[in-house]
Design a protein around this nucleic acid. Structure first.
Length: 468
RNA sequence: GGCCCCAUCGACUAGUGGUUAGGUCAUCACCCUUUCAAGGUGGUAGCACGGGUUCGAAUCCCGUUGGGGUCACCA
């Protein structure tokens, strides 16, 4: 069942802030997350164009209407004059507000019509401002916050059309939301203070306003509005780190929303979210973006993701690595699905991101370049090389190189000598992987294969030697 | 500063007048164990404060404090 349409409209009314490819990146990031627009500049739709800079004539027409209805007026004040006025008001302890120099006489101001005509005829650049009525109460019911009320006397005569002929966000968005028949505006709480301006515009045009929901803000650790300068903010930053769409979507959904009614579920698929999400269950307080829980969620998904999916995701990464670094084992073998599936199964509970199946598990593909000094220090004693050499020849002659067989062989080897398996287990791990941690040793050796294991043990002995 | 929003463990939150205030992440301890993880068990930790309303307030009302947002020819 289809509940709604999701429309992307590009609000590019500030020419000075144009960013190359921003629009394409935005849409592709959403698609990465599995959020596909029904209508957008790239997807088409019946309400286009979906780019505001291509709708300029529409805004001009509606602006003319407002001007004729005396709900808006021309303003020729320069930014210097505006700034001067602001400073003056500040000095007098007043709230900075446009002083309505250019409000026409017939709208209750002091500017004669002739003066305005003159400026217009001279071609002096101007701006169009909305005439905010004095002392009226503007009220609406927010879907998340309930009733909110404003006094119009606290709001400024908002600029609707800029001197470059482009509309401001406030003007363009109201017009487009109406023309595109939006039923719900769901946006960040930072927009709440501009509600009265928007509501007044709907009133001027005689349009029914859509439903509004102002979402709680995402916060930095210090509880300020999430921003650059304080770590990663853009989804792209998290993509780059290796987070999956599953985890990101799940995590963000939980920031401000919860299923409620005693539910203790933390992991939600996109389908579940679509089915269960509701604005009624969105909280009102801002939520700190805490990466630790995101990390945990990512691991949850890695643990349960079908092995084939992981394999196909990591294979390109591996192929690239193999091109850049020398490797010892046959390429067909280590790039085969069967081999990779074994690696994934051994490592999936130990990695944080998918790309770590290649990087963190590099010894499944490359011979160790070095041996962890701390582990060597702790586990590599002077008798180890001898024992290892001896055990290697045991392995050499064994026909079964399965994990269980290796385990049995090691125990049988070590027992008569009165040694514990651990004495050999750790050095074997160091010699074959280069590090002191990892999956079950026996299973790891089985996956690496007899030839590789024996070769690496010999190389390890040569390179680590009696050093410890 | 004006206006607006908000307020339960360190973080995300459940809770809608009567609960030993629950869960998740993080953290600590223990167990499991060849390492690292994963897993299991248990623990530390919270209703900002003050007034009301009520037999009874985390829950309702008022105030205080605190935090945030916003006050552009930016969105």
């Amino acid at each position: 069942m289809r509940y709604s349409d999701f429309v992307i409209r590009i609000e590019d009314t500030d020419q000075s802030r144009k960013v190359e490819d921003a629009e394409k990146n935005l849409i592709s990031t959403l698609e990465w997350a599995g959020i596909i627009p029904d209508e957008s500049p790239l997807h088409g739709g019946n309400y286009g164009p979906y780019v505001q800079s291509q709708r300029l004539s529409i805004y001009r027409d509606y602006c003319t209407q407002l001007l004729e209805d005396k709900n808006a007026y021309y303003c020729f004040s320069t930014s210097e004059e505006l700034e001067e006025n602001r400073q003056l008001q500040l000095k007098q302890g007043l709230q900075p507000k446009y002083n309505r120099t250019w409000l026409p006489e017939e709208m209750g101001g002091n500017m004669p019509e002739s003066e305005i005509r003159k400026k217009l005829d001279e071609g002096v650049p101007y701006v169009v401002r909305m005439k905010v009525p004095d002392y009226v109460s503007v009220w609406f019911e927010d879907l998340i916050r309930g009733p909110v009320e404003f006094d119009s006397s606290t709001i400024d005569d908002q600029v609707l059309m800029k001197s470059d002929g482009f509309p401001t966000y406030h003007f363009a968005s109201v017009i487009d939301d109406h023309l595109m028949e939006f039923t719900h505006i769901i946006r960040g709480e930072e927009w709440l203070p501009s509600m009265p301006k928007h509501l007044l515009l709907y009133e001027f045009f005689g349009w029914e306003a859509p439903k509004f929901a102002h979402l709680p803000l995402l916060l930095n650790a210090d509880r300020s509005k999430l921003s650059k300068r304080q770590g990663d903010v853009a989804v792209e930053d998290y993509i780059r780190k290796g987070f999956s769409p599953d985890a990101i979507v799940n995590f963000v959904a939980l920031l401000g929303w919860n299923e409620g009614e005693g539910s203790e579920q933390e992991v939600f698929s996109m389908d579940e979210l679509i089915q269960k999400f509701s604005l009624e269950r969105v909280g009102r307080a801002g939520a700190v973006f805490n990466v630790e829980k995101l990390n945990w969620l990512e691991k949850q998904y890695i643990k349960t993701r079908p092995v084939e999916r992981i394999v196909s995701a990591i294979k390109p990464l591996l192929l690239k690595e193999l091109q850049e670094k020398p490797f010892e084992m046959p390429e067909e073998r280590i790039t085969s699905d069967a081999y990779l599936e074994q690696v994934v199964d051994l490592m999936r509970e130990r990695v944080n991101y998918e790309h770590e199946f290649v990087t963190y598990s590099n010894y499944f593909f490359f011979e160790p370049e070095s041996y962890d000094a701390e582990a060597v220090e702790k586990r590599w004693t002077s008798e180890i090389p001898g024992l290892l050499r001896e055990f290697a020849s045991v392995l050499e002659s064994s026909e079964d190189f399965g994990a269980e067989a290796i385990e049995a062989a090691l125990k049988a080897f070590v027992a008569p000598k009165g040694l514990k398996p651990a004495v050999l287990i750790h050095p074997l791990r160091i010699a074959t992987s280069g590090v002191g941690f990892g999956p079950s040793l026996y299973h790891m050796l089985e996956v690496l294969g007899k030839e590789t294991v024996i070769r690496r043990v010999q190389r390890g002995i040569e390179r680590i030697g009696q050093s410890a």
